[in-house]
């Protein structure tokens, strides 16, 4: 399958996406932000359609929209109850906008399906490079902020009590989350990017009990998911997203069963 250039590009791109999403996912899950990451992917869809409408790259449109809205959500609402409500409102607005932008632009609807559901074909070498740079940037931010971000994500109240600048950490995290959503949507699509941003980390949570181990398991599961998905999509011609999400969901339920089994033994 590596005889085809598009498969090589897709393979490299999805490897970077899986590493980034698996890493960021650990913090999405520990900060209880699965819902926000889902919303950000819908906002990303609107951003990509906006990019197409005004003639800029969909990736740039996506980054622009997700960055602005994640920072807005972060600074609007610190209480989780209010956050849920404001996220729902913002999400509805952006799905509507995304559909409007697409209908106003002259692009065909197949482009919309690509943004929404992902595609392994048609990712160019240039786009792969953009993804790699963004992914490396996100990973570097996590290496730099690893310790305080872990403290704040796994024990927000303790981190506040210890005098950490939790607000700054929250904004830093939201920026990297917005970038990760934009990166991930390129392969798995904006509607299912949250699969990679939540399920592998949620599975890891049931199996291991330290932050580094959670990162290893989460990145591992998301890598296996995308590699397996690409391979199966290549031989069956079925959508890659179907295989990735099926694998991650099975892994999640196995993880949950393992946890329950351990509890009873």
């Amino acid at each position: 399958m590596f005889g085809y250039e598009f498969m090589r590009e897709a393979f490299i791109a999805s490897t970077f996406i899986a590493i980034t999403a698996g890493l960021v996912g650990v913090f999405v899950v520990s900060r209880n932000m699965s819902f926000l990451s889902h919303t950000l992917s819908e906002i990303g869809f609107a951003g990509a359609s906006f990019g197409i409408l005004i003639g800029i790259s969909p990736l740039v449109g996506m980054i622009l929209f997700t960055l602005i809205s994640s920072i807005a959500v972060g600074s609007l609402s610190t209480e989780s109850s209010r956050r849920e409500a404001s996220i729902s409102a913002i999400s509805s607005l952006f799905i509507g906008l995304g559909i409007l932008f697409l209908s106003l632009s002259s692009e065909s609807s197949s482009y919309a399906t690509n943004i929404l559901f992902g595609s392994i074909v048609g990712i160019s070498a240039k786009e792969v490079h953009q993804l790699m740079i963004l992914a490396i940037f996100v990973i570097l931010i996590f290496i730099i902020f690893y310790k305080p971000l872990s403290f704040d994500s796994f024990d927000h109240i303790g981190a506040q009590a210890a005098g950490l600048k939790t607000r700054l950490l929250s904004i830093t995290f939201l920026v990297t989350l917005a970038l990760s959503v934009s990166i991930g949507a390129q392969i798995v699509g904006s509607l299912l990017v949250f699969v990679l941003l939540t399920l592998p980390a949620a599975t890891a949570k049931y199996i291991v009990h330290s932050v580094p181990k959670m990162i290893i398991v989460s990145v591992g599961l998301s890598l296996i998911g995308v590699w397996l998905g690409l391979y199966l999509a290549f031989i069956t011609n079925w959508p890659v997203t179907f295989f990735i999400s099926t694998f991650e969901v099975i892994a999640y339920f196995l993880g949950l069963s393992y946890k329950n089994w351990r509890l009873n033994h």
Binding site: K147, F151, F154, D155, A159, K205, Y206, H209, M214
Partner: peptide, 17 residues
């Protein structure tokens, strides 16, 4: 009850890297 970290790892959150 779903909180993943062990007691030791929880305490370690407050350590400087």
């Amino acid at each position: 009850s779903d909180y993943p970290l062990s007691i030791e790892q929880f305490i370690r959150l407050n350590l400087k890297i």
